[in-house]
Design a protein around this nucleic acid. Structure first.
Lengths: 245, 245
DNA sequence: GGTCATGTTCACCAGGCTGTGACATTGCCC
DNA sequence: GGGCAATGTCACAGCCTGGTGAACATGACC
């Protein structure tokens, strides 16, 4: 089930109407808090654990719809935690957090079912998108549709990464795609450059804020070219997307 | 009966509409969990047992449509377990898991019926495919069609391993075939290189992720040669297959 | 044992993508 | 209208990703 709030944000709900539940397991407190905040902002109910033992305990009593699990934990390694989690909740999908270089050898075999992973440093938008994908596909929440975002005659498919406006397919780069997805998940709402930077770029990005303007410019060239513009500037406030005309 | 979920994945169902049931018998817990996870992701109902006695008990009350059975178990050897299983459920098809160096002829005798086997280390894609084959052929589930995957003018027969595009038969090696099958079982969906590696290559593969690119390259040469391309790259995201043009 | 098919690694190339800095343009305020 | 801040766009450089040829390894088959 998906409902649309007055602001136009699309929320995920469980069959009984209660919010989706997510457990965050990571021992780096700042990162864990950043993540929790972002997920709560999605309208989800969030608990966090700092180690494997706490994770297992929380899974047992909190019954989350998905788990975000850092591979490196103080008391046991990711595999061990995963095993214990699986015993408590065989079907819960897991999103692994891992360092970029540790990927190939350790992850192999972990993402057996519908599981997925992201490498640090990640962008919040990416983590949220992956989580939504996992939950959608797991069928825990009753949400089974909803991989398609639409604003006016513009659609974006989160599964196939396909973007179409007025029947015409549009090719976007990875960054352009994430930016557009963020805009489209918040239609008719002004998003500040700071917000955009925080959500779409990795949390350790140190560059110029000018990058947002640049990518907005790229998007306009591809999305709005010769058509009624959908991406609008609110001077001194930010950007927003809404149906053209 | 096969139904297609919103994501386009094809599920196997029993005549009464309930999910297919599989029993996994293996004493190596991590492997057993990896397998269970992958099978659950197929939409199947999974139970597991760590020894022969538990296996027999579970077969009696769970009535699975298929059994995955490791040859080496702590309490009795595969032959003994098989005998006891057959007494409980004469018709249930069995997929044996065996070490690569195990004596080939002993296995040959075991799989005399409709049974099948795979050698460790296996790829998840392979195990799932074999199980689907066994179940389909056993007639336990009402699924008798469905060995044919089709995307656009490209078809792949999981039984005969025949691949045809636009009426023209195409020869693929084993690895190429498994890769294409995985892509075709998830049409129009972006699959990351990590996902592909986890599903198509054996669970203990420790090599370069570059191997995926290489095999994509092979596939393109055979599948897309001179035709509208069906295999597409999403830079920074992964690969997907969809009808050409 | 030799040969062939297949699978894997390595090395290199090409091109795409990203982010920077400079500069042009726009809109706002006085 | 003038000036200023904010925004838009350009061109470029470096980096990273992906693609592919060739060499090497392995195992099957004769």
């Amino acid at each position: 089930m998906t409902t649309t709030s007055p602001q136009g944000r699309t929320e995920m709900l469980r069959p009984d109407g209660s919010p989706v539940r997510v457990l965050v397991v990571d021992d780096e407190a700042p990162l864990s808090e950043l993540l929790s905040m972002a997920l709560r902002y999605e309208g989800w109910e969030v608990r966090s654990a700092g180690d494997g033992a706490g994770a297992v305990r929380t899974v047992r009593e909190f019954r989350p719809d998905a788990v975000v699990l850092a591979i490196m934990l103080p008391d046991m390694d990711g595999l061990a935690v995963l095993g214990r989690l699986r015993r408590e909740a065989p079907d819960v999908p897991v999103l692994f957090l891992t360092a970029r270089d540790a990927v190939e050898d350790r992850i192999a075999g972990l993402t057996a079912g519908g599981d997925d992973y992201v490498t640090k440093p990640f962008s919040l938008e990416e983590v949220v998108a992956r989580l939504r994908g996992l939950i959608r596909r797991s069928g825990t929440a009753a949400v089974r549709s909803g991989s398609l975002l639409a604003v006016g005659d513009l659609t974006l498919d989160e599964d196939s990464h396909e973007v179409v406006r007025g029947g015409q397919s549009i090719h976007l780069t990875a960054t352009e795609f994430e930016l557009l997805r963020y805009l489209m998940r918040n239609p008719r709402r002004v998003l500040s450059k700071a917000q955009i930077l925080d959500r779409v770029w990795s949390y350790d990005f140190g560059g110029q804020a000018n990058i947002v303007e640049l990518y907005i410019s790229y998007l306009r060239r591809k999305i709005d070219a010769g058509r009624p513009p959908m991406i609008h500037t609110r001077r001194g406030a930010g950007y927003l997307i809404k149906p053209g005309e």
